[in-house]
Design a protein around this nucleic acid. Structure first.
Lengths: 364, 364
DNA sequence: CTGAAAGCGCTTACAG
DNA sequence: CTGAAAGCGCTTACAG
């Protein structure tokens, strides 16, 4: 039947060209065929029961290899594609994995999502992206909307969420891995690195370069930015050089334009600074551009460092010193850990600490 | 029952605290309650049939307002949340909308997705993001994977896809709107703007500035980049200044780093150029930075223009002249059109042409 | 305006 | 290793 094969190639749910006669001729009222090839159709062609088809196709339990072959062939012939909704309803579990990130406009999370997709998709799970905009009410709404879909797993960013969101996750029973930060709390699965240590490391680098009046510019003020600020303080206190007036924290969303503004304000407020640690590369790039515009020499007059090593930082003039964060690794390892949990491996829960890397360039 | 109310606030699918006795005591074997509050539970509490609950909650068909009230109250009391899988199976249609974009690393598509989400989500539809990486095989795989979920609608980028993908979409019967480009083909729904016209407009702007040797740098070479190139050619031909040697097309993915390389190569190959039109702001930013590094005066020696008006272009030194493209409007209007189609409005199909805006800054 | 019956297309839980 | 029955939780299609 070449036409059937043809349609099997083209359509994910081909219609039966030669519609079988209904097996019973009894008066049936509510008939509403979707035109879809079903498990029953495959079973009929293969001469086995639907359950056997189900098992053969999923590779679950032992099925006679000859039957598996026959079923597979029948499924191919008809172009059978399982119905995800029926599967989800019967098994109380879908193959979608809910992934909650704060923003898509930060390249960091795009890299993270790419890695998650590359890990999950080939294993039969589909990431479902939800954007929280750093807003706990939005996060709650997303959870309320998507948890009823019974996702197979859940990937969330960090630990900072409302108590309600926390309970929604816990009560759902859906396996959950936290990304970008780590924790030692029992029963918590997470993959990340120490934002605080990384912040301290880059601060020490500036100190080693001989800088003494090192400022910190932070935007957005999400937990990870605050952890970097904490690392900055630790680094300066160790050197006995901490001065709270050198900190500038803005709740505004991080951006190149904001970085330019923060730089100008900082310079005006504390003219004696000789270095700035920006909490993210985008505001650091803005700072670099503002310095260029104002004729402030970098690093001669003021050294500048960023965080995350985003696109363009290596191209800036001067190129930007920063911290390369392992977001792709976090995505890959986090998704891998979740994979283990979704498949029922309890010991997979734990905490994975990944490193970071200082990238020294011309700006310091 | 305060505990029930409590749980209704917290969980999207609370368990029944006071489990009702099974109505029949007959020997039932395959019992497998999910612990979920169902339509039947609500119906029992409200004293009506499940169908009435279904209709009252969906607002479908006329239901006595008193009953609606009673049903609503029962649903609230029990914390009822409909099961999306059951709904999708029974109605052969989910509330997810598949959105296919080439890349998340281009801020353009992030803006598009934001607008789509803001339009669709409040109306009860959830965007399901798929990334094709400008690869038709990936696009096909995404369609094969997600179409069986019977999404309520489909949003795709442009018209450039394999014949198989085209057929997959057509045969699925899922309403589909094409974004970012327009077409006059009958029965095709699309929202976009003329990339060619926009490309011609910025070329004319450079001509008006007195430039005569205007180069074009294109990366990625997706259909929209090629359309901009076509506009560039049209503009130069009108002025009798077209020279194919001024075109530099690279299949590499667009990026700041690539822009720097393209600029250097272009300058070496054609030292007499006095302007460059970059197909996208990221490579234009790279060009600007490379010029700075090499000491090439912009715009004095070479004028530079980009495309899309991405983040940072207004902060560059000199700030970048570009074309502001209406991606948020495309997302909003495209999703709005799809909304009409999903609700069964046939006349909604059509072509919406949105404008673009020349943003003249210091670089030209 | 309301409802009893059937059905959507799978998998679970038992049996054998 | 295979299968008949029941069930997952909704909506459709008819009736009245």
């Amino acid at each position: 039947m070449p036409t059937c094969l043809d349609s099997a190639i083209i359509s994910p749910f081909p219609t039966l060209r030669h519609q079988d006669k209904p097996l019973t001729e009894a008066p049936r009222r509510a008939r509403r065929s979707s035109g879809r090839v079903t498990l029953a159709d495959v079973a009929r062609l293969a001469g086995v029961s639907p359950i056997t088809v189900s098992r053969a196709l999923r590779g679950e339990r032992a099925v006679d290899s000859q039957l598996v072959e026959k079923v597979q062939q029948a499924a191919d012939t008809l172009g059978y594609v399982p119905d995800p909704a029926a599967r989800a309803l019967a098994s109380q579990k879908s193959t979608q994995v809910l992934v909650l990130v704060p923003l898509l406009s930060n390249a960091l999370f795009v890299d993270l999502l790419e890695a998650v997709h590359r890990t999950l998709f080939p294993e039969g799970y589909q990431p479902l992206i939800g954007v929280t905009h750093y807003d706990s009410a939005e996060e709650e709404l997303l959870l309320r909307t998507y948890l009823p879909h019974r996702p197979a797993g859940l990937l969330v960013t960090g630990f900072d969420r409302s108590e309600t969101a926390r309970q929604l996750i816990a009560q759902s029973g859906v396996p959950c891995v936290h990304l970008m930060e780590t924790s030692n709390a029992p029963g918590v699965a997470c993959v990340g690195f120490s934002q605080t240590d990384a912040g301290a490391a880059i601060t020490r680098h500036l100190l080693e370069r001989g800088r003494r009046r090192i400022a910190f510019c932070g935007a957005q003020l999400d937990p990870r930015v605050l952890q970097r600020a904490e690392g900055y303080r630790r680094g300066l206190r160790e050197a006995g050089l901490y001065d709270p007036r050198l900190e500038m924290l803005s709740p505004e969303r991080s951006s190149i334009a904001l970085g330019a503004r923060l730089f100008e304000e900082m310079l005006q407020r504390m003219p004696d600074i000789d270095a700035i640690f920006f909490c993210n590369d985008d505001i650091a790039q803005g700072g670099l551009l503002a310095a260029h515009r104002l004729g402030v020499a970098v690093p001669a007059r003021i050294a500048m460092a960023g965080f995350n090593d985003l696109a363009g930082s290596d191209q800036m003039v001067p190129s930007l010193t920063t911290v390369r964060t392992p977001r792709s690794e976090v995505g890959r390892e986090g998704a891998g850990m979740l994979l283990g949990m979704m498949r029922g491996a309890k010991p997979a829960v734990g905490s994975i600490e990944l490193g970071y890397e200082l990238v020294v360039r011309e700006s310091t």
